[in-house]
Every structure is written in C-alpha cells, then in structure tokens.
Design a protein around this nucleic acid. Structure first.
Length: 509
RNA sequence: GCCGCGUUGGUCAAGGGGUUAAGACGCCUCCCUUUCACGGAGGAAUCACGGGUUCGAAUCCCGUACGUGGUACCA
C-alpha cells in the first residue's frame, strides 16, 4: 500500500508571483490530481526582512485565477495547520536542538563581520571555496571548537548564535531525482549551512525538511536552483527522520529569458515589454505597478496551457490542453531537463487559440471590462456578442477587442484619409454623396441589401466597387482593418453610417 | 575559482542504435479575401565540438566548449 500523494507549493510572500512559480504550482497540482493526492500551499515567510505586505493574499488570488485550488493552505485550512512557517517557529527550534544534541549540528557565535573577515582571509589565501565548512569550522567561534563550558557561558550570557549543520567530509550524498536521475554530491563541497537563524527563525533548509515531514509530503517539486542545496536537505532527512520517510525529489528546469541567457526576471519583462507575473502586482513600498498576464488580456486557460508545455509535452502533436486533459496526460518523466527560453509570441498564440476555442460567454465580461476601461460605456449585451463574433479571429489578447472593435461603439477618433486622398477624385466624391442619398431610403438595413445598393450606384457612376470599398471602410472604421464593411455598416445602423460618410467627405474636401 | 545541472532549426520541441530528423510559434513566398485577420499550400536544421563503442549514433561512453544554477543568518 502506497502512501497518499501529497505535494506542496511553498512560496515566500515577497512580491509578484512569477511565471516559473506558477508553473511549479501547476506541475505540483497536476501530479497531485493525477494521483488522487493533495495539493498543499505552505507559506514560507521565515525571512522577516523580506516580508511584503499583501503578497500572501496576492499569491492566493493568482492561484484562484489560474483555477489551481489548494486542498490545504492558510486559506483553505487542513489538519496540518498552521501552514504559515512563521507560526510554526517553536517547532523548528526543537528539531535544531535535537540535531545539536545528536552531534549533527552546532552552535555558531560568529558575527557577520567575522564571517566577512573569514571569507576575506580565504580569498587572499587563494582558496577554492569561501564556504563555512569542515575545513574552516575549527577556526571559528562555535561550539565545536569551544569547550563545553565556554559554549554554555556564551549561551547563558545571551550571545546571539545560529545553529549550523555539521557536514562530515569525505562522504557521498546520493539521491534519485525524478527528472534527472541519479545525482551525486561530494560532501567535501557542501558547507555547514545555517539551520536556525539568530532571530530564532529557521532557514529554508531546516523548515522545508521539518515541514515536509510533518505534513507528510510524498513528492517535492521545486526549481532547479535548489539542486545545489539538495545534499543539505538529504542529510537533514537522514539525521532527523530517516531516508525512508523522505519525499521523492523533482527539480524542475528553469524558464529562461528569450534573448541572451539566464533566468527570466521581472527586469527582462520590463525591458522586453511583456509580463512575467500572473497578475498585476503593486509594490506597497514604491507603489510601482508591474503588469500581469491576466490584466494584459490573457485567459487563464491559455496561461496554464502555455506554462504546462514550457518544459513538458505528452509526446504527441497535441498543443492545446484543458486543465483536465493536463491532469490526465501529465507525467513527470516527460518533463525536460534543460531550461526553456520564454517566447512571448508563442504565448500570444496560445491565447488566440483559447479565444477561438472557448465559448464567448466565458470571457465576454472581461472584454466588456476592457472596453469600459477605455471609455466605452453603455454596452448592450446582444450587440457586444455580435461584435465579439465578428472580430475574435483577429484578437490575440483580450484588450485587442478594444482596438479591433471600438468603431462598433463609437466613431473612429481619427480617419486615415491619407490612404484615400491619393486616388480621390470628384467621381468618387459624387458616388458617396449619392450613396448617402440612397442609403437614406434603404428599406431593409441589412448586409446584402446594402451591398446590392452600393454596387448599383457604383456601376451607375461607372466605378468599380473595388476602388470604393477601401474608402468606404476607412470612413466607417478609420483605417484598413476590421471585418466586412457591409457587416459593419449593418451593425452600426443607418444614421451612424451616414454620419460617418458625411464626416469623412467633409475631411476630404 | 569551486561544485551541480544542461546542450536537436531564431524559439518551443518529437525522437532513447538503422527515420527523407515529426509538429508548433515566428519569418519568407503563394492561394483565398475588392481591408486586416482567419484558413490553406510551400520554403529554410545533419542534431555544440572532438574522440571512442558499433556493421551502423542525434540516440551509448569519455573528454572539450558553451550555457545555466548555486556558492547568504534569501527563498
């Protein structure tokens, strides 16, 4: 009988939720749901210096938007509460002390200045490593070097200290990563990481192991940037709970910036003009706003979809997946080892596909919001639906519905008369004057009737419809884009059509 | 510097000893369309490099290069 699958996403509430973070959530979620397991969100707020107001609520809002609902979290409750590490502070100390007692960890009293000095010393000595490790620890101010009574005295005096893991040299730490296979670390290269900070908070290293144990996590997914510290975690598992209880690890590939190299960061987004955060994030200190995928006009279905296939595919040609399909088809051994460069063009393509795939009613409200945000009020439901149907093929983002459809609601603010002027003459002027007169008496204001009449007046004036269509379009739309002209005319109605023709005519005088 | 991980077209990628090395995005050409899109047809890679192993390697092994991550009382 296997233990129940339990996975966790462990964000630290320090700012916007990065794309890579959402993908980590997604893979966690897919894996859990595929195996009938639980998806837990645990807030890793052990660094009080980096705490950011509102970041936690923001993360949950992003997850909600994405449709990735946790089974247990600070918000959703659960039997392993609390799910906020700052509220579990006392627990970690207990385990840290236990490690000291068992000889796997020690107290270190070195001040930050002393640590700097130590690194400086090693640097000038030409050392390969500047780490606080087995090679240097007997020269430092810690309970390993000090006599027991000296240590006790420092402790009694309330000297600030940290607890560090004692990594033995000349050993090999081996483990099997679900994505990368067997990985081996030489403990000579592993440093004595701080487990418990001077403020009594655990570092990530201690907290992740303790909580994964206490919360019965079965599989641990995290970014590749954690790989180098994996041996510390494995050692901790060995010393504290035994390797048998340890979850299986999976280190996910990174999402790289599209140009150059390196991890995709918020800076790149600003530079290249696309978002990296799931939703808008406003920094409470600087009040600087960083745009999110949601607000820029992405559908959550598309966002999830494009993230899922950035580093994973099911081996077939399928590219469009619903969440349910992803749950069904996801498998960890199809996840790539190498990082993937993020391609915003392809991201937009996914959104476009989802706009086409989803029923309009799914996102109609969001389009309405975009229109309203741009000053188009008084939107009638039925009319909006027709507009959406007419322009959706040319929209990749939700706010494209404004640029592609605004003229259905209001006269274009500018008319591209330059595109007309070159071939404009009195004959055409006359044609449109007659068209206005004709349209005034059109009995049925409808596509085919309008087109029939248009062509009739054209041939009466010995003009080809072809050379009149573009001017007509520009009069109604303002530029060279949009659906069929007669569709537009029939939509905006007789009065408005005539008004726009006359307005353009006056501009062309 | 040291340690780890990675490397198939511009990008995402299939492919795991014998293939004309899929497909998608983007780009270009053409068709459709009296606009723009949508849609359709086509064009562009010998798999980082060098050695092996093998009758045969993008696929296995070893080096090198390059990239990337870590090297904090941050996660």
């Amino acid at each position: 009988m296997f233990n129940k699958v339990r996975v966790r996403f462990a964000p630290s509430p320090t700012g916007g939720l990065h794309l890579g973070g959402v993908r980590t959530v997604l893979y966690n979620y897919l894996f859990a749901k595929k195996h009938g397991g639980d998806f837990i969100v645990r807030v890793e707020d052990t660094d009080q210096a980096r705490f950011v107001e509102g970041a936690e609520e923001y993360i949950f809002k992003c997850l909600e938007w994405c449709g990735l609902v946790p089974d247990e979290s600070v918000l959703h409750g659960g039997e392993y509460a609390p799910y906020r590490q700052s509220e579990r502070k006392a627990t970690y100390r207990q385990y840290a002390e236990q490690l000291v007692k068992d000889g796997y960890a020690y107290y270190a009293f070195d001040t930050p200045e002393e640590l700097d000095a130590m690194r400086e010393r090693l640097k000038t000595k030409g050392s390969h490593s500047l780490q606080y490790d087995h090679s240097i620890r007997m020269e430092m101010n810690n309970s390993l070097r000090l006599l027991p009574n000296e240590t006790q005295e420092l402790l009694d005096r309330g000297t600030p200290y940290v607890i560090r893991i004692k990594v033995n040299p000349n050993e090999f730490v081996l483990f099997t990563d679900m994505i990368r296979g067997d990985i081996e670390f030489d403990t000579n290269n592993v440093d004595d990481k701080v487990l418990l900070k001077a403020d009594g908070m655990p570092t990530y290293h201690l907290a992740v192991v303790v909580d994964d144990y206490l919360m019965k996590i079965s599989h641990a997914f995290r970014g590749e940037e954690w790989l180098p510290s994996a041996p510390v975690h494995i050692l901790l598992w060995k010393y504290l709970f035994g390797l048998d209880a340890m979850p299986q690890w999976a280190h996910l590939p990174l999402i790289l910036k599209p140009d150059g190299n390196g991890k995709l960061s918020k800076r790149d987004a600003d530079r290249l003009g696309f978002p990296v955060y799931a939703m808008d994030w406003r920094d409470p200190k600087s009040s600087e706003l960083t745009r999110g995928f949601k607000e820029i006009g992405f559908l959550p279905e598309a966002f999830i979809n494009l993230l899922a296939v950035l580093g994973w595919n099911d081996g077939t040609e399928q590219e469009i997946f619903t969440l349910d399909e992803l749950i069904e088809k996801f498998s960890i051994d199809k996840v790539h080892k190498g990082g993937a460069k993020f391609d915003f063009e392809k991201a937009k393509w996914y959104n476009q596909e989802w706009i086409k795939k989803l029923p309009v009613t799914n996102y109609e409200l969001r389009i309405k919001e975009h229109l309203q945000a741009n000053g188009i009020l008084n939107i009638e439901e039925e009319y909006l639906l027709k507009v959406i149907e007419l322009v959706k093929d040319r929209c990749t983002l939700l706010n494209d519905f404004y640029t592609q459809g605004a003229f259905f609601f209001q006269a274009p603010p500018t008319i591209d008369t330059d595109s007309v002027k070159a071939k404009w003459d009195e004959k055409k002027n006359l044609f449109f004057t007659e068209l206005v007169r004709g349209y005034q008496f059109t009995p049925v204001w409808e596509h085919s009737e309008l087109e029939r009449e248009f062509k009739e007046i054209a041939s009466a004036n010995q003009l080809k419809p072809g050379e009149l269509m573009l001017p007509f379009r520009i009069m109604l739309v303002g530029g060279k884009f949009g659906p069929g002209v007669f569709d537009i005319a029939s939509m905006i109605g007789k009065e408005e059509t005539i008004r726009r023709i006359e307005h353009s005519l006056s501009l062309l005088q």
